[in-house]
């Protein structure tokens, strides 16, 4: 009886953990897509005004996006490592 309760608890914990990680990654993708969309519109405005800061803005936003992805992957890897051990 105890063993089956423990197995159910472990399975539900594993499923919850996987769902949490998936939601986290999906949120990251959605946020980056929204960021890219709004950023694209801003760049359009700046380009229409012939701003010289367009290339710099693109570089900055790319760095921000990459930092976000790297941090999210680190957190995912860290939590998976702790979960497996």
């Amino acid at each position: 009886m105890n063993a089956s309760v423990s197995a159910v608890a472990t399975t539900s914990f594993t499923i919850s953990f996987i769902i949490l990680q998936l939601v986290s990654l999906l949120f990251m993708i959605a946020l980056l897509l929204q960021f890219a969309l709004i950023h694209g519109r801003r760049i359009e405005v700046l380009q229409s005004l012939q701003s010289h800061k367009v290339a710099y803005r693109c570089f900055e936003s790319r760095i921000l996006g990459i930092v976000y992805v790297i941090f999210t992957l680190i957190i995912t890897a860290f939590s998976t490592f702790i979960f497996l051990h």
Binding site: F17, L20, L31, T72, F83
Partner: peptide, 12 residues
Amino acid sequence: FALLVGIHHWYF
């Protein structure tokens, strides 16, 4: 973990 993920995404 849930708190960590939530705070991380809130920050970014």
